[in-house]
Write a protein that binds this DNA or RNA. Structure first.
Length: 629
DNA sequence: GTTAGGG
DNA sequence: CCCTAAC
């Protein structure tokens, strides 16, 4: 079957490419990645490689040109990567990828970067996108190994060529047979991008949510519709509002939907957020339409693993669990230990696409998400019997990783690391977000739809990205450690989630970045943009409450804020609460735009009045209830 | 869906 | 503002 030879190939190359110093590509979007080269960041795989390298070093000094690399290797080895697209995939779907194993290094080959996969309705060659899977990333069973001469390092090139036929299930077994790395274990995995490629273009999209054509495609729609979800639908409903009931129906529906969207959109812990924005836009668009057409967006929340499973499960082990943590098997050859990395445990990915999007688009989105993860800072973690091996300086023997050890319990993880919220990142993101000036928009003029919406949230509130990062860090204290330093104590603790837990339901844990139980919030919530009430709004609120009473928020909303789509009755209620509080504290303690004292006085008066009113009512009720008895 | 409150 | 329990 086709499956057999197919490897995921996915474009990882392209994805990672940006990281590689040597293969600078379009300079424009690589800012964030760039740092990897100079920072302490390393290619995730390099870490793995480093480990392997050490191992080799220990076992065989002769071959260890590689071993010299310390745990961290900043310089990317020359990668013998063929230009993507060149031979690899001319084949049919072009989806195949290959893993090239060099004596001293392993290169992942990725097929032609999906150029425009996303937008392409195409399905023709789009397979490549779908094929990408982290777990597949390094897959021994699936791939096709090809020895390549190792120029710089390997003094003696030992081309090894082995073609592995994917095994349906027991990946490991086959692998061993397929290729022989006699002396070398994958000492180095080079995820870097091949020199090729313009095609890698897709990857570069990385921080650029809009880059792809597909994006623009949606963008058109977006522009017209972009804005606050809530507002959007509210507006819509208002216009068509003729009967209260009807309105409510619409309102609720859209509200819920928008809320849901909003939540899903935010992916706090990953850099994907920019992309998500993009989705958001798309979704919004659809969301609007949905009113009319009852079109519903499908929010897909794909876990990487799940994705892999569905897309490529045939190739691997049928059991989903396998995806959770990479299983590794090793074989000792001489003194070396052979590792076969079936998959890496990767952070969860969330992808959302409109139902109307093409499959190709979906693939593109997944690809992007994957790319981002790969491009982001991450490091490889080595898990031995569920425990994280943090000392990079220990030899495999010392660590207990040897042929004798139960390699079954050895696993590798790709862990996201969010170093410091780099300004770069923020900057990058900001542009992506809707261009708007928060300050001005706060006053919200209907005429500025774009800024008006929640979309602006990210840009106005820089807090978003930052917050995200902060949160992330909070959760993963210690994770900020330099990638090279495989772990810290904290990480070890946190790594629970990453620990090999075969029995565990991969589904539940798979995506968790570093902590076992990420806060629920983590998934997606994103706060709405803060929009302080203006004095006029306060006045309107006060007036409404004075007449309607506190507690009838829905009525207040309808009475005075029916057009303020961004003000929900809950917001009004909350505002009233704060007004009451504000009115009761010293002026010096008040913050924000000062509210005229007269209004505050009215607030207190109304609050007092309605409180009494309420209490009276309660009294009456109680009496009526009790009296009868 | 609304309210009421805590966070 | 968010989240939820209670209606």
């Amino acid at each position: 079957m086709v499956l057999k030879k197919r490897i995921y190939y996915g474009g990882f190359h392209g994805l990672l490419a940006p990281v590689i110093p040597k293969a600078p590509r379009s300079s424009r979007k690589r800012i964030s990645r760039h740092k990897s080269s100079d920072g302490g960041e390393i290619c995730a795989f390099e870490l793995l490689a480093a480990v392997a390298g050490k191992l080799l070093e220990e076992s065989e000094s002769s071959t260890s040109s590689i071993g010299s690399e310390k745990g961290v290797k900043h310089e990317l080895p020359e990668v013998n990567v063929k230009p993507a697209g060149s031979e690899y995939h001319d084949q049919a779907s072009g989806a195949e990828s290959e893993v090239v194993v060099k004596p001293a290094s392993i290169d992942l080959k990725i097929e032609p970067p999906l150029k425009e996969v996303p937008q392409s309705e195409n399905d023709s060659g789009s397979d490549h996108a779908s094929n990408i899977t982290m777990s597949d990333f390094i897959k021994k069973d699936v791939t096709h190994f090809e020895g390549i001469e190792d120029k710089p390092e390997g003094g003696s090139p030992k081309p090894i060529r082995a073609e592995a036929v994917e095994q349906q299930s027991g990946g490991l077994t086959a692998v061993n047979n397929t290729y022989s790395l006699k002396d070398q274990v994958a000492s180095r995995v080079n995820t870097c991008v091949p020199k090729s490629p313009p095609s890698s273009v897709h990857v570069p999209l990385y921080r650029d949510p809009v880059p792809s054509a597909c994006y623009s495609r949606y963008r058109d729609n977006v522009n017209t519709n972009i804005r606050d979800d809530d507002e959007k639908y509210l507006r819509y409903s208002n216009r068509s509002y003729t009967s209260y009931n009807r309105r409510r129906v619409f309102g609720s529906r859209s509200r819920a939907e928008s809320r849901r969207i909003r939540k899903m959109l935010t992916y706090k812990y990953w850099k994907t957020s920019p992309k998500l924005k993009y989705y958001e836009l798309a979704d919004t668009t659809n969301g609007v339409k949905s009113f009319d057409h009852k079109r519903k967006n499908i929010y897909m929340r794909e876990r990487y693993q799940a994705y892999c499973a569905s897309k490529r499960r045939k190739v691997f082990d049928p059991s989903p669990k396998s995806a959770y943590v990479k299983e590794s098997s090793s074989e000792s050859i001489s003194n070396s230990v052979r590792f076969s990395i079936k998959s890496f445990k990767v952070p969860e990915l969330y992808v959302e696409v409109p139902e109307t999007a093409t499959v190709g688009y979906l693939k593109g989105r997944v690809m992007k998400a994957v790319t981002e993860i790969l491009q982001g800072q991450l490091h490889v973690g080595v898990l031995l019997q569920g425990k994280k091996v943090r000392d990079d300086n220990r030899t495999l023997q010392q660590t207990g990783i040897s042929e004798n050890c139960n390699l079954e319990s050895l696993g590798f993880t790709l862990e996201p690391i969010k170093p410091e919220p780099s300004p770069t990142l923020v900057q990058k993101e900001t542009p992506l977000l809707l261009p708007c000036n928060t300050q001005q928009d706060l006053s919200r003029s209907p005429s500025s739809p774009i800024t008006d919406g929640e979309f602006s949230n990210s840009s106005p509130d820089n807090s978003h990205p930052v917050t995200t990062l902060d949160n992330y860090m909070e959760k993963n204290q210690g994770n900020t450690t330099f990638p090279a330093e495989v772990t810290t104590e904290e990480q070890v603790a946190d790594s629970k989630a990453l620990v090999l837990v075969p029995e565990r339901d991969a589904e539940v844990l798979s995506m968790v970045p570093l902590s076992e139980k990420p806060p629920k919030r983590f998934e997606y919530s994103q706060r709405r943009t803060r929009r302080p009430f203006s004095v006029s709004e306060v006045e309107a609120l006060v007036e409404a409450v004075e007449t309607l009473g506190a507690g009838r928020w829905r009525d207040v909303k309808m009475r005075s804020f029916d057009d303020a789509n961004h003000r929900t009755y809950v917001d009004l209620k909350d505002k009233w609460k704060t007004l009451v509080h504000t009115a009761s504290i010293a002026p010096q303690q008040r913050r924000g735009e000062p509210v005229p004292q007269n209004l505050l006085d009215r607030v207190l008066a109304a609050h007092s009045y309605w409180s009494q009113h309420q209490s009276k009512q309660n009294m009456k009720q109680q009496k009526t209830l009790v009296a009868p008895m």
